[in-house]
Amino acid sequence: MTVTAKKKLTFEEYLTYDDGTNNRYEFRDGALIEMPPATGLHNRIIMFLAFYLQTEIYRCNYNYCVRANSTEVFIENKTRRPDICILTKAQDKELEGKPDILFEPCPLAIEIVSPSSRHDDFVEKRKEYSSFGIPEYWIVDLKLRSLSVLTQIDGDYVEKVYKGKDSIISPTFPTIELTMQVLLEA
């Protein structure tokens, strides 16, 4: 991640910022943080999970929608862009015609760990998403071949790690039939 050398922006300026490139940024206390492109495997996992969860939403008629690599959450004067956000349909409707930024917690945020983002995903985002009130946070760790489901209980995340053929249990998606093995073979 690279911090741009430009002057600090207000959040309102960030909402309309366009430097003429396809670069993607997060906003942190007035600075733009350039987000590097994901690897092919990273993108494949994002797309598989987005499709899988959207199919589950349709099958079970859940009141959710999937946003892959687009919706940001505004936490403590910064934005984060989870790889996948599960929004309520009301949140989705509220964002129509507005910047794709949530100011209230979504039901689930998912991050696929990149080598350059291990600390952010496991430490920083864990604290931020918990304090923001996101009730469930998944961390997919391709290096360790694991998926952690963090669930908020009394304001703190409780973590359960799944590997191999362990059936992943999710409060947001109680009917999923997913394992880390299936995810890695996607």
Rank of each mutant, 00 (worst) to 15 (best):
M1A: 15
M1L: 14
T2A: 14
T2E: 14
T4L: 15
A5V: 08
A5Q: 13
K6F: 13
K7L: 13
L9I: 11
E13R: 08
L15Q: 14
T16N: 10
T21Q: 10
N22R: 15
Y25L: 08
Y25A: 01
E26R: 02
F27T: 02
R28A: 11
R28P: 00
A31K: 11
A31S: 15
L32N: 00
I33P: 02
E34D: 07
M35L: 01
P36I: 13
P37L: 06
T39S: 15
T39W: 02
T39V: 05
G40Q: 13
L41D: 11
H42L: 09
H42D: 11
R44F: 12
I46V: 03
M47C: 10
M47G: 14
F48P: 04
F48Q: 12
F48E: 05
A50K: 10
E56S: 00
R59W: 06
R59Y: 14
N61L: 15
Y62T: 12
Y64P: 05
R67K: 13
A68W: 12
A68Y: 07
A68E: 11
N69T: 15
S70H: 13
T71P: 07
E72P: 03
E72N: 10
V73Q: 01
V73D: 04
E76T: 05
N77P: 09
P82W: 03
C85L: 02
I86P: 03
L87F: 03
D92V: 02
K93T: 05
E94H: 08
L95E: 03
L95W: 00
G97E: 03
K98C: 01
L102H: 01
F103R: 10
E104V: 05
P105G: 10
C106Y: 00
P107V: 01
L108F: 00
A109G: 03
A109R: 04
E111C: 04
E111K: 00
I112S: 06
R118A: 00
H119Y: 13
H119C: 05
F122M: 13
F122G: 02
V123S: 09
V123W: 04
V123I: 11
E124A: 15
E124H: 14
Y129Q: 04
S131V: 07
S131Y: 09
G133L: 07
I134E: 08
W138E: 00
V140D: 09
L144C: 12
S146E: 12
S148E: 10
S148L: 08
S148A: 15
V149N: 06
L150W: 06
T151I: 12
Q152K: 11
Q152G: 06
I153T: 12
Y157S: 05
E159S: 14
E159H: 02
E159G: 05
K160I: 08
V161Q: 07
Y162V: 06
K163D: 10
K163Y: 07
I176N: 08
E177M: 02
T179L: 08
L183F: 01
L184P: 02
E185R: 11
E185K: 12
